[in-house]
């Protein structure tokens, strides 16, 4: 029906804008170069020769949060580091996602004590939790693929009301609520 019938074998395909955008987002997702503890080593191992994360379009790490889409919180977050992590998250441009890699980032793992934030979800909203201490590179890759699946199903509508861009009746942009 529709365009497909008219186009015949002309060599192009049609899709929804949403699917095209999400396809682009999943296959060129840039993680922030940001390691905290032991999990960072396994994150490096996942990007190195044996596991080769670039098979999933994830090899371009960005040291600047402004250019990154994905924050992999790899390791325990101490109370001294927590404000830094939140600031990095705030500096990332929308749309952005967070993977809590490892038990420490998910729930503080074995470190139930004064120094460690009991789960990074107290500071930043987490999309995917990866279990393990540290998770094997395969687990991280699985977590990343899970995130890709999640992103593929996202709507193009603003991800949250707080950050939505609003327009008045004449089509002029009004202040973003929740922007800083």
């Amino acid at each position: 029906m529709g365009l497909e019938e008219k186009a015949g074998n002309l060599g192009f395909v049609t899709t929804t804008l949403e699917a095209a955008v999400n396809w682009g987002r999943t296959n060129a997702m840039w993680p922030l170069t940001f390691g905290l503890a032991c999990c960072a080593i396994e994150m490096m191992a996942a990007q190195a020769s044996d596991f080769d994360l670039s098979r999933f379009g994830m090899e371009v790490n960005r040291p600047s949060p402004r250019q990154a889409d994905l924050m992999i919180v790899a390791g325990r977050v101490s109370r001294k580091m927590a404000p830094v992590v939140r600031q990095l998250y705030d500096q990332m441009s929308d749309p952005k996602w967070v993977i809590a890699m490892g038990d420490c980032a998910s729930s503080a793992g074995v470190f139930n004590n004064y120094a460690v934030v009991q789960g990074v979800d107290e500071i930043v909203p987490v999309d995917v939790y990866v279990a393990g201490c540290p998770p094997r590179p395969e687990s991280l890759i699985h977590g990343i693929i899970m995130l890709h699946e999640k992103v593929k199903r996202e709507k193009l509508a603003p991800r949250s009301k707080a950050n939505a861009i609003r327009f008045d009746e004449s089509g002029r942009q009004v202040d973003r609520i929740g922007s800083r």
Binding site: K80, N113, A115
Partner: peptide, 11 residues
């Protein structure tokens, strides 16, 4: 330093 202080000794 101290950004990764984990309290291991006390724990």
């Amino acid at each position: 330093i101290g950004f990764l202080h984990t309290g291991i000794e006390k724990n």
